[in-house]
């Protein structure tokens, strides 16, 4: 027996959210496993407003209840995001799992969150009283904790169009070829014009958090791809220095080595 609310509109959902402790439920792929006794859920999968993928001119907007399968079928979703989504779990999970759920579950191994982070993504949150839009890295506090307030819901993920069509680098390492949590994942987006780096992003799974390395990234801007390539190991080091890897299913040394290798490969492949 499962108890819950099944609102038909976002307004109704926010209203329920503001006055109850019901747990937001989109795809349920993590909540079903958790199977918390006596839980009351706020089912969001009937709300059309949360299931849209749109282009507002500046941003690709992906609703919180959009499933990974739907996103993979949609032409607006950028290639880096699709690459990440296509390696999440298995078809049955992708058919149910959502962008909002991947964020709200507050796992430090969320593959769609990593891709959004590398794309300078934002997340729009709403409550009955108002709304706010924050950067991905500011949304995520630590494993199991985000800034989402008790009265808020995740509405959509925003991906700047200026980043969406740029070349990218992505690699996920799980324990096997499917149904595998990322032990390490790496995502990067870069813009090189006339041999000069205009913008570059680096995002990794393996640190127990979602963060960007703004200083190290900024230090590369304006340099030539050729120069970075020649000094790839040193450039990689400027990122690695700021990273602290967690140990768990694999060791921190494994994570550090793989991220270093991939970073070096990434910096060698620019342009």
């Amino acid at each position: 027996m499962v108890n819950g609310y099944k609102p038909g509109s976002l307004q109704e959902a926010l209203d329920i959210r503001s006055r109850t402790d019901a747990i937001p439920y989109a795809g349920g792929t993590d909540l079903m496993v958790r199977n918390q006794k006596g839980a009351v859920y706020l089912f969001l999968n009937d709300i059309e407003a949360l299931k849209q993928i749109t282009d507002d001119g500046d941003m690709i907007r992906i609703g919180a209840a959009v499933t990974f399968t739907r996103a993979l079928e949609n032409d607006l979703v950028p290639p880096l995001m699709k690459e990440a989504l296509s390696q999440i779990a298995a078809p049955a999970i992708r058919n149910a799992g959502t962008f909002g759920g991947n964020l709200g579950n507050a796992s430090d191994k969320a593959d769609s969150v990593l891709a959004a982070l590398a794309l300078d993504g934002r997340v729009r949150l709403a409550s009955a009283g108002g709304e706010r839009t924050v950067r991905i890295e500011d949304f995520f506090v630590k494993r199991g904790e985000t800034i989402l307030r008790d009265d808020e819901l995740i509405v959509e993920v925003l991906l700047p169009k200026s980043r969406c069509s740029l070349p990218f680098y992505y690699q996920k390492l799980g324990g096997r070829n499917a149904l595998a949590i990322s032990r390490v994942a790496f995502a990067g987006v870069y813009d090189v014009q006339d041999g000069v780096i205009r913008s570059i992003s680096v995002a990794v799974i393996g640190e127990g958090k979602f963060t960007r390395y703004r200083e190290a990234e900024a230090a590369l801007i304006g340099r030539t791809a050729e120069e970075v390539k020649e000094n790839a190991a040193a450039c990689a080091d400027s990122f690695i220095r700021n990273m602290t890897f967690t140990r768990g299913r694999v060791s921190a040394e494994y994570r550090r080595t793989v991220v270093r290798n991939l970073l070096t490969d990434y910096l060698t492949s620019l342009g």
Binding site: A90, G175, R176, N177, A178, L179, A180, I181, R249
Partner: peptide, 12 residues
């Protein structure tokens, strides 16, 4: 659990 004890899947 099958999250922590990995056996080959069809994709493997």
């Amino acid at each position: 659990s099958f999250t922590d004890y990995l056996v080959p899947t069809a994709m493997d």
